[in-house]
């Protein structure tokens, strides 16, 4: 049937597009704010009304990654021989602190960022891996009490997690898991695995059994059929599940704040903790936040095709 678009429909389309543009701008505004502040000179960060046009600098990022000390009133500095990025620091009346051997001292941020990566990636891999295998079992085999078990798995998500924060803290202290990567990984995996099971079960249910059965009669074992047929077919679902698990683990704040303080601390509790020391430098905080946004953005961008297919899964599959 040919669709002839009437002028009324065209107007409707324009209104819809205008609405989408407005909504997009509203949602992107905070991100723009963070992004622009991350590149502002310190004195322009807090002006009212906000400064829109400015000469971008990367000094906030230099400050983000380094430890600095105030210059003493008559301290001599060799401006000419200092590297370009340190010169920007001098302008603010500070210098980068060094060890006795002259090595640059890094701030706490890089370690926290790496902690975040370790914890989020490991827990995502574990949750998605275990979730996929569990979902496959539920989807393909007769499991006694399947409905009850699935409900039980889901029920672990029914309690607001923060309710168990104190018991968790005590248990972790007793088990020696406080402030350890392993502790956070276990927690985030446990938190995500139920979600992964349910999501993956939906995806695997959609893969016709005949694919594996064809592989079975063609001479493959169940495990080989799973690896060679089911996994590639479920790639879309795995990608979608991984993104969700990663985002949850990456953004988690409350438990990271309670269960870690230094060695295994992740970026979310660290970034606001900087505000507390003296007059906050908002440009540094914005730089830290801006960098923190990037991994999720990149991860989602890389998997975007899978995600789109995953979201409309039921719609396009017969």
């Amino acid at each position: 049937m040919a669709v002839v678009s009437s002028s009324g429909q065209r107007l409707g389309n324009r209104v819809a597009i205008a609405a989408v543009v407005v909504i997009t701008i509203i949602f992107l505004l905070p991100i723009y704010w963070i992004g622009s502040t991350a590149f502002k000179p310190r004195n322009l960060a807090t002006t009212a009304p906000p400064t829109i046009v400015f000469q971008p600098e990367i000094s906030p990022f230099v400050k983000l990654f380094t430890k600095r000390v105030q210059l003493k009133p008559n301290e001599k500095i060799d401006v000419a021989n200092a590297p370009w990025w340190e010169q920007m620091i001098f302008a603010g009346g500070e210098r980068i602190s060094r060890t006795g051997k002259g090595e640059i001292q890094l701030s706490g941020y890089p370690d926290r960022f790496i902690n975040s990566l370790i914890v989020a990636i490991t827990s995502t891999v574990l949750a998605v891996g275990m979730g996929t295998i569990t979902a496959y079992g539920f989807s393909r085999f007769k499991v006694k009490g399947e409905a009850d078990l699935l409900f039980f798995i889901l029920s672990t998500r029914m309690l607001p997690p923060i309710v168990v924060a104190i018991p968790m803290f005590l248990m972790y202290r007793a088990a020696g898991l406080n402030d350890s990567h392993l502790g956070l990984i276990i927690l985030y995996t446990a938190f995500n695995v139920s979600f992964a099971v349910w999501l993956m079960k939906g995806f695997i249910d959609e893969i016709p059994r005949e694919y594996e059965e064809a592989a079975l009669v063609d001479g493959y074992t169940r495990l080989e059929a799973f690896r060679k047929i089911v996994l590639p077919e479920a790639a879309t679902g795995i990608a979608a599940t991984a993104v969700f698990c990663f985002i949850t683990a990456w953004n988690e704040y409350a438990f990271a704040l309670i269960l870690t303080n230094k060695k295994a601390q992740t970026a979310p509790p660290f970034i606001p903790s900087q505000i507390g020391s003296g007059l906050p430098d908002w440009t540094v905080i914005a730089a830290g936040t801006f960098l923190f946004l990037l991994p999720v953005a990149i991860f989602t961008f890389l998997l975007r095709n899978h995600l789109l297919r995953g979201m409309s899964f039921g719609a396009i599959r017969k």
């Binding site: 016709p208 064809a214 009669v217």
Partner: peptide, 29 residues
């Protein structure tokens, strides 16, 4: 096991592996 019976099966819905080419489908067994 099905794999050890040396019997081939043609499914009603064909069950061709969508992520393989026709050649790979034929080569799979």
């Amino acid at each position: 096991r099905a794999a050890d019976r040396d019997i081939a099966f043609v499914f009603q819905n064909y069950a061709l592996y969508p992520h393989f080419t026709v050649y790979q489908n034929l080569a799979f067994p």
